[in-house]
Structures are given as C-alpha cells and as structure tokens.
Amino acid sequence: MQSENVVKLFTSQNPSALVDRAELTECVTLLAKLCSGKQPFPILNHIRISSEPGGMALTATNNDIQAETSIVADVDARFTTALPAAALLKLMKKGTPSSTAILELLPEEDPDADRTIASKCAIQLASTRFVLDAMPTDDFPEPIRHVAGKFHKFSIASAILWNAIDGTIDAVSTDETRYYLNGVLIHSHNGHLRFVTTDGHRLYIQDTNVKTGKFEVNAILPTEGARFVASLLDGHAGADPVKVEISASVAVFVFRDIAVSLKLLDGTYPDYQRVIPAEPDKVATVAGGTLSAAAASLVECTGASTVHLKFAAGELILRADGTTGRGTTGLDCDYQGDELEIAFDARYLRSAIDAASPDGRNMKIRMADAISPAIVTGSIGGWTGILMPSRA
C-alpha cells in the first residue's frame, strides 16, 4: 500500500520532490558560495536538502558560517539528502532547459548497517535524467544556533548594512596573533550602531543611524562571514530591512529569504578610540578621484610603495621614489594651515581614498604634523578613516 506521505505526482515509490527550477537555481547559487570545494570535510562541499511543511529546506555551512533558506515544492516527507554544491549548481544552470526539476532519491542497501540509504539522487530536467552522488545528512554539522541567554534584535536597511561592511572591511587585520582584529566590530556608540575595523596601520569607522536603544551591542563578525553577508547583499541593497539577532556567540542576519548565522570571534576589541586624534589644525580638501588616479600613476611608473604629499596654499604636490625612478605631480587643493609634508603607504592611501569617496568627489584630510595620524572623510556620510603616516 502506498504511503500517504509519498506525493502522488510521482510514479516512483522513492522519496521525490518537484520544484520550480528557477527558484531552486537561485537558492543553490547563493548557498554554493559557502561550498568552495576545498573544505576539509567532504560534507561541507554539499548542500543539505530536506522536506519541510509546504516545501524544501536548503542549508550550506563551512562550520563557521551557515546559510539556510527554503522554497515551495511538492515533496515527499521522507526526502532528505546532501548534494554536491558545484555539480548541482552546474546542472541547474547548464542542464536541459525546463521550468521544473524533479529530484528522486535512489536507495541502496548499506553493507555496514541494517538500513537503506540514498547514495544517489536522480534529477529530471525535461526529458533528460541526471544522477548525482549524494551523502547522508547524518554527516552534516550541527546547526549554528544561539546558546541559552539573551540576544538583541534590531533591523537595519540592507543598503546601510552593505555600505558599512564594504566601507570598512578593507582595513581588517590579517595578523593571526591578534585574532580579535580579524573581523568587523559592531557596537553601540552614542546610542547608534557603529562598524569598526583596524589593522594597526589604518582604522575605518562607519557610523549609522540605526538606534540600539538601551541594549549595548558588542560583537566581532569574522571577516569571512562579513564578506559573505556583503556578497549576498551586493546588487540587492536598498531600503528593505535586514533582521539581525546578536547573542554572546552568534549573529544571525535574515534577508532575501535567507538566514545567515555566523560564529562570532571570541575576544575583546581594543579601545580604538585612543588612536583617534583631537581635531587637527591643518585641513586639505581635494577631489578623491583625482588624488587616487595621481597616486596610482606615480606608484605604477616608479614602483614606489610610499607616496609623499606636500601641502601648501592652493596646491598639493605628490612625490614617489621607487625602484624604477622618481615621479612628481601637482594637484589643485584647498588647504588651510602651515606648509606640511607627510608620507603614507601607497596602498593604504588609495584604500582610504576609495572608501571615503568612491564617487571621486571631494574629500578632506585633517592633519596635525608629519608623524601623527591623519583623519580622512569624504562623500560617504558617517565614514571616517584614521591613517597612520609612513616613516619611509
């Protein structure tokens, strides 16, 4: 007698699912970003697909980052498997054109246990049938969840979240001895949410208008996890809210019908505000696009790693001395203060310029002297960069 749990749409008695192909392709495209194919355990290169009321739940993880979503489907309640992400993605994108996909688990006897397992999954696209190797979901890691205790909930516009991560992530440290700097600090500052990164050479801050209320948010998002969230937001950022939950060990972001859970970095972020100088007395206003292009040209032509900036009334002179020669160029600059020459690492300088004014518009550089940190601001509201000068 046929089980009542088996969808009547299918002639096979095997666990099966009928799903809209475009929706499945979109979900697999997003989740496959976590499955690089180079994970230490084979199961981490797979997407878990399981039945749930009204559809299928899909999950991918690398043990530190987890992404979950679901889609509407006609599915057998017994359906559960883990399919290789790369192969499934290629099949969904390049397989025979069709509007739907039928997935059917092909069971076989487990020689080492008294049970039947699904080691293959057949995928029907129009008249073409493909078969992928599958893994049992028993091998899938435990889900990333909040542990017992309080967690804070708030919402942030997707554009604000993307901008905050994108505008600060470049200054994240890669020094493993100070692992707590290998991420993005999000915390309450003056009642609002602030994002901070530093590698000791530069400090990037993005203030937002998101109120944290009476709750003190304080968490360090791991670099890879922050980049993953930003990659899913890229091209989709706008006014739509991202729902956020933060506990002592986990952060969860819900948007685009996806829940992304991150294991937070353990440790205490240093008091970064100590390196922010008091308002310097020398202020230069210059077009960010022009300054970035000039610095890039000098570095490219001279092989220099350091760029010297000499500020005087109405003028900025850039100089670079490198392995293949010396170069100088002049730019228009609105400068207020005594004449000053200061040097910056070329890569850090261009990074700060691009973060402050990605549109190339005017930016400000505030300086006290040649050896103190400079404050950089631009056309991105709420963004501040602290740039350490070079001694070279």
Rank of each mutant, 00 (worst) to 15 (best):
L264D: 09
P143W: 02
A164W: 02
P111D: 03
A118W: 01
K93E: 04
V252T: 13
N63K: 05
P141Q: 06
H308S: 05
T80L: 10
G225R: 04
P42V: 08
L387Q: 06
D114S: 11
I156K: 03
F255H: 03
D345C: 07
I65Q: 11
H308P: 04
V299T: 13
S372G: 11
D321K: 00
K8E: 05
P111N: 13
I49P: 02
L31C: 09
I258E: 01
D114F: 14
L89H: 07
D334Q: 06
V252Y: 07
M1E: 04
I49K: 02
I375Y: 08
P270K: 10
V307I: 12
A343D: 04
K38P: 06
H187A: 05
L91A: 08
M367L: 12
K214G: 09
V147K: 03
P270D: 09
L30S: 08
D139V: 02
T384V: 14
G385A: 02
V254H: 13
V376Y: 09
S297I: 13
T323D: 10
G213L: 07
R274D: 05
C121Q: 05
A304I: 02
I165S: 02
F154R: 12
P15N: 10
L291K: 08
M363G: 08
D234Q: 13
Q124S: 10
A239Q: 10
E339T: 06
A148C: 00
D112E: 15
A304K: 10
L291R: 13
L193T: 07
P42H: 07
Y180R: 05
A67V: 03
A295D: 05
C333G: 07
D175M: 05
T137S: 12
D334M: 15
A293L: 09
H236W: 10
G95W: 00
L44G: 02
T329R: 13
Q66I: 04
I65V: 15
V210Y: 09
M56V: 14
T59L: 05
